[in-house]
Write a protein that binds this DNA or RNA. Structure first.
Lengths: 152, 152
DNA sequence: TCTATATAGATGCAGTTGCATCGATAATCG
DNA sequence: CGATTATCGATGCAACTGCATCTATATAGA
C-alpha cells in the first residue's frame, strides 16, 4: 500500500465513476437552476455560507476556506453578488485590508428560491435512488477521501 | 419516496461530500499534471477513448457520448489536439458531414506519459485510502446514481 | 523606528466555456 | 423527385477561469 504508484482496477473504476457521476449530477442541478432562471450553484454555495454565518458576516478568506473556491474566484463572485444586491461589503474596523461580507434580505430570498430547486434536484438525483443507509455509507466512504483527511 | 421534493439530511450530506470530494480530487490530479508540464485531464479522457478505439478511430459524436463533454467542447478540444499533432482528422467516405478522429503515435506517447502521472494520482488519492472492497462498494453506490441508470 | 516580509483582496490578460447559431450533408415524407 | 426536417460539426460572442501580479495594510525583525 505504501508508495504505490499504479492504481488497482477497483481504484480506477471508483475514480472514473466518481468523476463521471459527480459531473453529471452537477450539470443536472445546474440545468434545473437555469430552467428556473436562477443563478448558478456557486452562488448558492456562497449565499449558504453567508446565511449560516448570520449578521456578523464572513471575511472573503473565510469563504475561501469553507467553499474551496480560488481566491480570485471568490473576489469576482462577490463583486457579482454585490452588483446584484445579494450581499453587502462592510469595511472592518480592525483590519484595513479586509472587509466583511454580509448577506442581504434579497440575498436570503434568492437563496431560498434556489434551494427550492436545488433541494429538489438533490432529492430526485440521490435521495430517490439510495436509501438513507446507503447514503450514509456513501458519505462515510467519501469522507475517507477528503484531503486533508479530516475528522468529521 | 415518490415525488419527494425535499431531500433527507443523509441525501444532503452525501451530495455535499460527493461534490466537494470530487472537485478536490480533480484539482489535485490536475495540479499533478501541471507540475509535470502535461496537458489537462480532458485531453487524457479523449486520448484514452481514441487509444481504446484503435486504428479505426472514432467520430466526434461518439466521443461526446463516451466522455459526456459538450459538443462545442469536443469540437475545440479536437482542434487543439490536432494542432498539437496528437490526433488526426480523416474524412469519412459514407458521411460527408462527418470525420473520423484517430490518435497518432505522438498522441499515444502523450497519453502514456499522462497516465504515469494520472495513475499515480489515482493510486495515492483513492487507492491508498480505501481497500479494494470499499472501492467496489463505492463504485456500486455511485453506479446507482448514474443517469440514465445504466446496467454496467 | 525603519525595513523586510506576509497577508487580504483586486485585476489585466490570455485561454476556455457556454450559448446560440450557422453551414453543410443526410434522412424522411408527401 | 422536391421540400422539410434532422444530424454533424464549427464558430462568433459574451461570460468565466486561471495565472500572475499589484496595491494596500499588517506583522515581524534588526
Amino acid at each position: 500500500m505504501t508508495e504505490k504508484t499504479s492504481p488497482s482496477p477497483a481504484a480506477i473504476k471508483a475514480w472514473a465513476r466518481l468523476m463521471r457521476v459527480s459531473r453529471q449530477l452537477m450539470e443536472r442541478s445546474e440545468d434545473a437552476l437555469k430552467d428556473s432562471s436562477l443563478p448558478p450553484l456557486a452562488w448558492y454555495d456562497v449565499l449558504h455560507e453567508l446565511a449560516e454565518a448570520g449578521e456578523g458576516g464572513l471575511r472573503p478568506f473565510q469563504l475561501i476556506e469553507r467553499t474551496l473556491f480560488a481566491q480570485y474566484n471568490i473576489s469576482r463572485l462577490l463583486a457579482r453578488l454585490e452588483a446584484d444586491g445579494l450581499v453587502e461589503k462592510l469595511r472592518v474596523a480592525d483590519d484595513g485590508r479586509g472587509q466583511t461580507i454580509r448577506i442581504t434580505g434579497k440575498g436570503r430570498e434568492t437563496r431560498r428560491r434556489m434551494w427550492a430547486v436545488y433541494g429538489r434536484s438533490i432529492a430526485e438525483l440521490v435521495g430517490a435512488r439510495l436509501s438513507d443507509d446507503d447514503l450514509d455509507t456513501l458519505s462515510a466512504l467519501l469522507g475517507r477521501l477528503r484531503h486533508p483527511a479530516a475528522l468529521e
